[in-house]
Simulated scan of single mutants.
Amino acid sequence: MTARGFDVVVAGGGLVGMAIAWGVARQGLRVAVCDGDDIAFRAARGNFGLVWVQGKGSRCLPYARWSRCSSERWGAFAAQLQRETGVDCGFERPGGIELFEHEAELEAAGALLESLRRRDAALTYEALDRAALRKRVPAASERLAGALWSPHDGHANPLYTLRALLQALLASGGVYLPRNTVREIRPRAGRFEIDTPAGPLEAARVVLAAGLDNARLAPMVDVHAPISPLRGQIMVTERLAPFLAYPTLVVRQTQEGSVLLGDSAEDVGFDDGQTRAAMADIARRARTAFPALAHARIVRAWGALRIMTPDGLPVYEESRAHPGAFVAICHSGVTLAAVHADLVAPWIAGGAPPADLHAFTTARFTAPQDAPHV
């Protein structure tokens, strides 16, 4: 069978892969996205929808800057998607609020944000005591000790964003191949042969953005993919009258009125189910923060698997052994979607790597002499 030829083949049709694919297609290259089955683990479809910067970067300042850069680009990113597809990603950036039940937790988190601000004055925030929090969010419980607000944070609808990216990719001439998991990648001189259920593909470049499946694919192009699953559970209420104009880490009201309650962090392997204990804890934290939610009906619940590296930071890397093969790993597919399309994609298309990308190679997990390059 004759292989179909492309400039770039992306393995993975989630938010990471699709944002990169659309960004590459905007460079005028021929792009194909190989996606998995509907039963595949899909973090993009189980996402809480935060565009979040607050608190990131405590151990790696470039991660805070990378996240803030993406947050600042999100408005233009969403606007362009809407112009090209008519799909509203639901993006808003009113700033995000992290809520605290106890004074000690508030003080510790405030000290962290202050340490980040001292290292980068652009990472601003505001501490809210009980009175200031209630003034800004009247529905917040009087039992809360206070909150931290950051202007860099926002939220979006992950499903609409994924839909918009797919439509924009197709409109840019890209090809989407669903139910077409990459079986094998064979490096050849200056190109790659990609074996799929729909037939062979050939490309000058290949991007591994397949989430947890990167662990299987990465050795085929001699790159390192140190990843493991971490389950999060989310519940969704019926539609309620507007009461929360800011995203928080535990409660987020959507434009439609439904309320997302989350989340959990559970090391349970590849089990993406739900548990009574985790859902009870999520409900308790939500009721503690917003007492009116005690009477809301839960209409849906799910579990999904995050893609985690050992230190929680993303990985972007080109193979030393097989130039043209790239790996992209991250658990913040919503937050980082804008920089994936605007900055990572042009690098994959042949441009220079973004300035902060050196911080996100697997060199941090290996001895210096073994460090791959970007």
Rank of each mutant, 00 (worst) to 15 (best):
Y176N: 06
E84M: 06
E256N: 09
F41H: 15
A245Q: 15
F243W: 09
T275S: 14
G14R: 05
H322K: 12
A215N: 05
K135S: 13
G190C: 01
T85A: 14
Q233E: 09
Q369F: 10
E98D: 10
A283H: 08
D213P: 00
A355I: 14
S228T: 09
W22G: 06
G324D: 03
F290I: 12
P242Q: 13
L113F: 04
A328N: 04
G303V: 04
A210H: 01
R93W: 00
L240I: 04
Q233C: 11
A109L: 06
A21N: 02
A156P: 02
P219D: 07
I227V: 13
L116W: 08
A21M: 01
A283R: 13
W66T: 01
A76F: 06
P187H: 03
A341S: 08
A286K: 01
L343E: 14
L162W: 09
M235T: 06
L169I: 07
A104H: 13
A286L: 07
R216K: 00
S258T: 15
Q253Y: 10
R134D: 03
A168G: 13
G312A: 03
V374H: 07
P187Q: 07
L29S: 10
G14W: 04
V374D: 07
L165N: 00
V206D: 00
Y246D: 11
A325H: 02
V182A: 09
L208S: 00
L112I: 10
D311Y: 05
P229V: 01
E142Y: 03
L244P: 00
L208T: 01
G17K: 10
L128M: 05
M235L: 15
G273W: 13
G96Q: 02
F243Y: 14
G12V: 00
I227W: 04
V87I: 15
R45D: 09
E202A: 10
Q233I: 12
E202G: 14
Q274L: 14
R239F: 03
P151V: 02
R117F: 05
W74H: 14
G232Q: 03
A359L: 12
G14A: 04
I20H: 03
E317L: 02
Y160C: 12
A156S: 08
A283C: 13
Y160D: 13
A218W: 00
G57I: 06
S67L: 05
L106I: 12
R68Q: 14
A278G: 11
D263M: 10
N157A: 07
G95C: 08
G14H: 06
A301S: 15
L159V: 12
A301C: 15
E126G: 04
A367D: 11
W22P: 01
W74E: 10
V299D: 12
L240D: 03
Q369W: 05
I227F: 01
M235H: 05
G75H: 11
S70N: 10
R231E: 08
L159T: 11
